[in-house]
Amino acid sequence: MRAIAYDRHGRAGQVLRLSEQPAPAGPAAGQVRVRVLSRPVHPGDLAGVEGFPGAPRQRFATPRIPGLEGMGVIETVGDGVRELRAGQRVAFFPVPGAWSELVTAPADLVVPVPEGVGDETAALMLVNPLTLLSLLRAVEDAQHGQAGRLMQLGGPLSGLHALKQD
Rank of each mutant, 00 (worst) to 15 (best):
Arg2Ala: 09
Arg2Ile: 04
Arg2Glu: 14
Ile4Gln: 08
Ala5Lys: 07
Asp7Thr: 07
Arg8Pro: 05
Arg8Phe: 12
His9Arg: 08
His9Thr: 12
His9Ile: 11
Gly10Tyr: 13
Ala12Gln: 07
Gln14Arg: 14
Val15Trp: 08
Arg17Gln: 14
Arg17Met: 09
Ser19Lys: 03
Glu20Tyr: 11
Pro22Asp: 15
Pro22Ala: 15
Pro22Lys: 07
Ala25Pro: 05
Ala25Lys: 10
Pro27Asn: 04
Gly30Thr: 05
Val32Trp: 11
Val32Gly: 07
Arg33Glu: 11
Arg35Gln: 11
Val36Asp: 06
Leu37Gly: 15
Leu37Ala: 13
Leu37Asn: 13
Leu37Ser: 15
Ser38Trp: 11
Ser38Gln: 10
Pro40Ile: 03
His42Tyr: 13
Pro43Met: 03
Pro43Leu: 03
Gly44Tyr: 14
Asp45Arg: 02
Leu46Glu: 12
Leu46Gln: 09
Ala47Met: 10
Glu50Met: 15
Gly51Lys: 04
Gly51Arg: 03
Gly54Arg: 13
Gly54Thr: 14
Gly54Cys: 10
Ala55Pro: 00
Gln58Phe: 10
Phe60His: 06
Phe60Gly: 04
Arg64Pro: 01
Ile65Phe: 05
Ile65His: 07
Leu68Cys: 06
Glu69Arg: 08
Glu69Ala: 10
Glu69Lys: 06
Gly72Ile: 01
Val73Cys: 08
Thr76His: 12
Val77Thr: 08
Val77Phe: 12
Gly80Glu: 03
Gly80Ile: 06
Arg82Ala: 15
Glu83Ile: 03
Leu84Arg: 01
Gln88Glu: 11
Arg89Phe: 01
Arg89Ser: 00
Ala91His: 01
Ala91Gly: 02
Ala91Pro: 00
Phe93Arg: 00
Phe93Asn: 02
Phe93Ser: 01
Val95His: 03
Pro96Tyr: 04
Pro96Ser: 13
Ala98Asn: 03
Ala98Asp: 03
Trp99Tyr: 04
Trp99Pro: 00
Ser100Trp: 09
Thr104Arg: 05
Thr104Trp: 02
Ala105Ser: 10
Pro106Asp: 14
Ala107Leu: 01
Ala107Val: 02
Val110Gly: 02
Val113Met: 00
Pro114Gln: 08
Pro114Ser: 09
Pro114Phe: 03
Asp119Met: 06
Thr121Ser: 05
Ala122Glu: 05
Ala122Ser: 03
Ala123Glu: 11
Ala123Ser: 15
Leu126Lys: 02
Val127Gly: 00
Val127Ala: 11
Asn128Leu: 06
Leu130Gly: 10
Leu130Gln: 11
Ser134Thr: 15
Ser134His: 13
Ser134Leu: 14
Ser134Pro: 03
Leu135Ser: 08
Leu136Trp: 09
Arg137Ala: 14
Ala142Arg: 04
Gln143Glu: 12
His144Gln: 15
His144Trp: 07
Gly145Lys: 09
Gln146Tyr: 04
Gln146Thr: 03
Ala147Gly: 07
Arg149Ala: 14
Met151Glu: 10
Leu153Ser: 08
Leu153Pro: 00
Gly154Leu: 12
Pro156Arg: 08
Leu157Glu: 09
Gly159Leu: 01
Leu160Val: 13
Lys164Met: 11
Gln165Leu: 15
Asp166His: 14
